[in-house]
Design a protein around this nucleic acid. Structure first.
Lengths: 89, 89
DNA sequence: GTTGTAATTAGCCATTTAGCTTATTAGCTT
DNA sequence: AAGCTAATAAGCTAAATGGCTAATTACAAC
């Protein structure tokens, strides 16, 4: 859970997530949308993957990434616990 | 919005938020719950305050902090936009 | 106004992080 | 197996971050 919060702290990584809302994309397609080096995007993807926020699947010689909505939902529930007074403190 | 995500990246700051779920507390009361120096907690509080996640109010010579649920709710809505496919991409 | 208490700010240090460039791995295709 | 493309890993650097101690502000009470 901590790694998910850490992963979301970087705006580029949040942009990657927003990008993946539109559907699965390869690492190269994702990198094209950003003004940083491909290797930098690749590391962002690794951080998001380690946090469980995205899922990677190899298709031939390219790797397709997709948003893992399950972990995002877990985050939402976590945050909802902060605003719901009755939840387990 | 970015500052809120950044603020939540640190586990101590998330613990402070969880602590404030139980009700408003002074800076000193908050600091007592953590094994770090008071000045360090004070800076964490400033970061949370700048991000709008907590509200500060002076009562005499002490300052009382409380959770700002409004900004937490904004965060929740932001995250929900990631899992709801129909929302504005 | 001086003393005391609550809290923040300033200044310093070690660690982490995000970026880059240059290798290296993994899988096609010939 | 040799070459080509997609992607990650390695190694480096500058900037940000979280911790500390010491100094400073803000208010209250004497």
């Amino acid at each position: 859970m901590n790694s998910a919060f850490r992963a979301l702290a970087d705006p580029t990584r949040r942009d990657i997530i927003e990008l993946l809302r539109g559907g699965s994309l390869t690492s190269g397609e994702i990198a094209q949308h950003f003004p940083v080096a491909w290797a930098t995007i690749s590391r962002h993807l690794a951080i998001l993957r380690d946090a469980g926020l995205i899922l990677a699947e190899r298709h031939g010689q390219q790797i397709v990434y997709e948003l893992n909505t399950t972990v995002v939902e877990d985050l939402i529930h976590h945050l909802m616990g902060w605003v719901k007074p009755g939840a387990q403190p």
